[in-house]
C-alpha cells in the first residue's frame, strides 16, 4: 500500500492506462505543458506528447464534443473540465451526444469517454467557481456518475471508467486533491456501481459521498464518544446508478437515516436517497430521514457567509441528535 495524495492517485491511473493502450488520451485546459491545475496529469505531456495529452483552447463545448466524437472510433479520451461550473458549457455534448448516442443508434455507436471535473466549494471562489452539480449529472439516462472520497477510489474509479464502454462522469472536489490515503500497489479497479460501508454502526445510517463522507465519519466519532450513538457511514461513490440494495440494507438495520451533501437540497442526492428509502424500506423507519445540505444561495464570497452556507460535520451531529430527540 502506498500512501499517496488524491491527485497522485489520479495521475497514476492516467499513466498506467495510457501506457497500456495508445488510444487512451487526455484533454483539457492547461493539462499538458502547464501540468494540470490540480496536477492530475503531471508529467504525462512529457511522456506521451501533444497528440495524446492535448492542451485545449478554452472551449468546453467544443473540446468535449471533440473527445466524444473521437470515442465513437474507439479512442478513450479522459476529458478534464477544469471546474464543474464550466461543465454547463459542455452539457449539450455530454447529455445529448455521449449519453444518448448508444440508445438512439440502436446500440451501433457508443461513447466510451470519461469526463473528470472538480466541483465543490473551495476557499472564497465566489458564485461561479464554487458549484456542486452532481445533481445535474445523476439524472441523465446513459451517463454513469461516480465521485471518489479518497485516493484509493480516485485511482480505482478512473481505471474502471476508462475501461468501461459507457460514458462516465467523475465528480472530484477542489479541496481534496492534497488529501492522502492508501492506494494498493498493484492494479486496482474500483467498481463503478454499489456503495461502501465505511464505518459499521447500529443506530443510524449517515449517507455521504465525496467530501461529505468525511463529515459523516467525523460526526460518527463524536456521536459515539459523546452521545453513545452508533452511526453507520455509507459512502455513495456511485451517484448514478445509486445503490438501492445498499441503502435498503443499511436502513433496514439502523432504522434511521441522515443524508449529508455539500450541494443545495432541491432535486439532489438527499432527495433521491429518501425517495429510494421510501420505495424500498419505508416501514423499517423509526423516524423521518433528514437531509444535511448547503443553503440555497449562489455561493457567497465573504468568508463568514461562505462558511455559513456550507454544512460540515457539526451539522451532521446536530441532525442526528434531533433525530434522537436530544436537541
Amino acid at each position: 500500500m502506498a500512501n499517496i495524495m488524491y491527485w497522485e492517485a489520479i495521475q497514476r491511473a492516467h499513466d498506467e492506462e495510457m501506457a497500456r493502450d495508445p488510444l487512451v488520451i487526455c484533454m483539457g485546459e492547461d493539462i499538458g505543458v502547464a501540468g494540470g491545475t490540480y496536477k492530475a496529469t503531471k508529467g504525462l505531456y512529457e511522456k506521451y506528447g501533444p497528440h495524446r495529452v492535448m492542451d485545449t483552447p478554452i472551449s468546453e463545448g467544443g473540446f468535449t464534443g471533440l473527445g466524444i466524437g473521437a470515442s465513437f472510433l474507439g479512442v478513450r479520451p479522459v476529458i478534464e473540465i477544469m471546474s464543474v461550473n464550466f461543465a454547463w458549457l459542455a452539457m449539450d455534448q455530454m447529455f445529448n451526444s455521449a449519453a444518448k448516442v448508444r440508445y438512439m443508434s440502436g446500440g451501433q455507436l457508443t461513447a466510451p469517454c470519461v469526463f473528470r471535473s472538480a466541483g465543490g466549494a473551495a476557499h472564497q471562489l465566489g458564485a461561479q467557481h464554487s458549484a456542486r452539480m452532481e445533481k445535474v449529472f445523476m439524472g441523465i439516462a446513459g451517463l454513469r456518475v461516480v465521485t471518489p472520497s479518497n485516493p484509493r477510489q480516485a485511482y480505482g474509479l478512473l481505471k474502471s471508467a476508462i475501461r468501461s464502454d459507457d460514458p462516465v462522469f467523475i465528480n472530484e472536489h477542489e479541496l481534496m486533491y492534497n488529501m492522502k490515503g492508501e492506494v494498493p500497489d498493484g492494479e486496482y479497479f474500483h467498481p463503478l456501481e454499489g456503495s461502501e460501508v465505511t464505518r459499521s454502526g447500529t443506530d443510524v445510517t449517515l449517507f455521504g459521498y465525496n467530501i461529505s463522507v468525511h463529515w459523516c465519519l467525523k460526526a460518527a466519532e463524536i456521536l459515539d464518544k459523546q452521545y453513545g450513538i452508533s452511526a453507520e457511514v455509507i459512502d455513495l461513490y456511485s451517484l448514478s446508478p445509486l445503490d438501492r440494495a445498499g441503502i435498503k440494507r443499511s436502513v433496514s438495520k439502523t432504522h434511521r437515516a441522515v443524508i449529508a451533501e455539500e450541494d443545495e437540497a432541491p432535486v439532489g442526492v438527499g432527495s433521491e436517497v429518501i425517495a429510494i428509502i421510501n420505495e424500498e424500506c419505508f416501514f423499517e423507519l423509526d423516524a423521518a430521514p433528514v437531509r444535511v445540505h448547503s443553503a440555497l444561495v449562489p455561493q457567497p464570497y465573504n468568508h463568514t457567509l461562505e462558511k455559513a452556507a456550507i454544512p460540515d460535520h457539526e451539522d451532521v451531529v446536530k441532525a442526528v441528535l434531533k433525530l434522537f430527540g436530544k436537541a
Binding site: G65, I68, G69, A70, V75, S105
Partner: peptide, 25 residues
C-alpha cells in the same frame, strides 16, 4: 454513416473528434 443529430451545430465537434481519431490511428 455516424449519424444524424438533432441539436443544430452539435455534429461539428463530433466530426472533428472523428477526424482526431483518424489522425491518431
Amino acid at each position: 454513416f455516424m449519424g444524424g443529430y438533432a441539436l443544430v451545430g452539435g455534429p461539428f465537434p463530433l466530426a472533428a473528434g472523428i477526424a482526431k481519431a483518424i489522425q491518431l490511428k
